[in-house]
Design a protein around this nucleic acid. Structure first.
Lengths: 135, 135
DNA sequence: AAAACCATGTCAGATTATCTTACATTTCAT
DNA sequence: ATGAAATGTAAGATAATCTGACATGGTTTT
């Protein structure tokens, strides 16, 4: 009943907050941005501003990384998700779909197979995830 | 499906964002805090961090101010709301209720009548509220 | 009408948070 | 052993925020 619906892609959060929410370091977050996994907005003074969607993505990145997927793999996985997210609207999506497919489909299968095979071995460093967010 | 429930009183927002969301100036927000209408958390470095509840409250403050209610009135109104918010849990609330009532009930009626009478005259400066939040 | 008050604006100086760039380190793949 | 990928870390710069003080325009109160 209080006025605040706050859309999911509204730029709201500073990097410090996102660090706490995701348990990622600033370095990691910036690195993932550098590689196009997220594209946070900026303030007039060039500070990053993250949306809820950005945070969700970062949490997915973290999960996948914990499972041994590398950034290239995550990039492709995000591409696939983009396909399926436009789901129940079937008629004129096929064009956009095909475009993205051409770019990724071939190597996608290869990459996914490759990555997901070794997933679960090694890696998985960050322990039982509940470390101290918000002291 | 994306991981982010974000509780309503989790300290998340910088004052800059809150300014945009509420259309209040930093001065106003700090002044309202100074008078106990909100109590935002702080970072280790003393920066204010606001929760969704803080923002809701600020929006209510803004509304009431636009209607000519002064801070003293808003304070009392918030007190009343606190009563009614613990509603459907009737049995052992009566104690806390009575305490707060003793402090505010008498002058509350007086104040509310007084304030709400002249509400709507003068004041009402901030125009049809949609000015430029997020450039 | 003068004095006091309320709510806000504004300025100044200090401090924190974040930015970019560059180099170091670690781990894994070839 | 070499190289690439992912992250750590340090330095210097800039932006955002903080507190405190004083200024200002209305509103009561005396």
């Amino acid at each position: 009943m209080g006025g605040s619906q706050i859309r999911r892609n509204m730029p709201l959060f500073s990097i410090g907050i996102v660090m706490q929410l995701t348990d990622l370091t600033a370095r990691q977050i910036r690195y993932y941005e550098e590689h196009g996994l997220i594209s946070p907005a900026r303030t007039e003074g060039n500070k990053r501003l993250f949306s809820l969607n950005d945070i969700d993505k970062l949490l997915e990145v973290k999960d996948l990384i914990d499972q041994g997927v590398n950034l290239a793999g995550i990039k492709q996985i995000f591409n696939v998700k983009q396909h399926n997210d436009v789901a129940p609207n079937d008629e004129d999506n096929k064009d956009a779909e095909k475009v993205r497919k051409d770019l990724s489909d071939a190597e996608l299968r290869k990459l996914l197979r490759k990555e997901l095979l070794r997933a679960g071995r090694f890696h998985r460093n960050s322990g039982p995830g509940d470390r101290s967010r918000f002291h």
